[in-house]
Amino acid sequence: MSYVSDIGEFTLLMKSVFSKPEQGKMFRKQIILEIDKIGINSIGIVLIVSSFIGAVVTMQTAYNMSDPLFPDYLVGLSTRDISLLEFSSTVMCLILAGKIGSNIASEIGTMKVTQQVDALEIMGVNSSNYLILPKIIAAVFSFPILSLISMIVSMMGGWIAGMLSGSVSSSQFLYGLRYGFIPYYLYYSLIKVVTYSLIITAISSYYGYRTEGGALEVGKSSTKAVVSSSLFILVFDLLLTSLLL
């Protein structure tokens, strides 16, 4: 029963989120701020995680394929496909759900319990539109770029790890990266990432927005936001994969 009312509440919230902003200039300013918070501020973690995972994936694949029957370039190829198909979209977004989802839920939750949201409403501002829509737009814009960065960096990480560990030669690895490249994988990945960006921002905003009480409840909302966004990401991963591949 509570699921039904949750969906109802969520739908109503999104209806007021996707309305025309009152003040174009303030709205654009908010978007820029959010791109900084959601996009630019996440580059660091994307770089670190992607390069390490890329390196490890390469070393593991090389180890598994040490049989001389497998050509060395397969290591590059599988590193590429893993990052293209799953790592730089789904896994990266699960990590970002933790970082950005909790951030959004606690920011809006705090504003809610300290009556800053009420203050906006009293002034005649559509608070959900003003607070949430810029986040959604910023995420839809930033996530694909973060994903592309992640793809490039994880492949670079793999390349460097392969060379340093001597498990695969540079030329074989680079040949593998280019071998049998299917551009559609890239579209598939970006479609997933855009979907996840919507999931993370909308769900986390929803949990932030319905926070009531105090600091304890803000913490709870933030946990719920991360757990729900992660679950929805996994469900949509399955759905989109069965639809698109």
Binding site: M111, T114, Q115, Q116, D118, A119, E121, I122, M123, G124
Partner: peptide, 14 residues
């Protein structure tokens, strides 16, 4: 509401 000003119990400054 644009004719209303409100001061909240906890100030509610942004």
């Amino acid at each position: 509401r644009q004719e209303i000003g409100m001061v909240f119990q906890g100030s509610a400054l942004f």
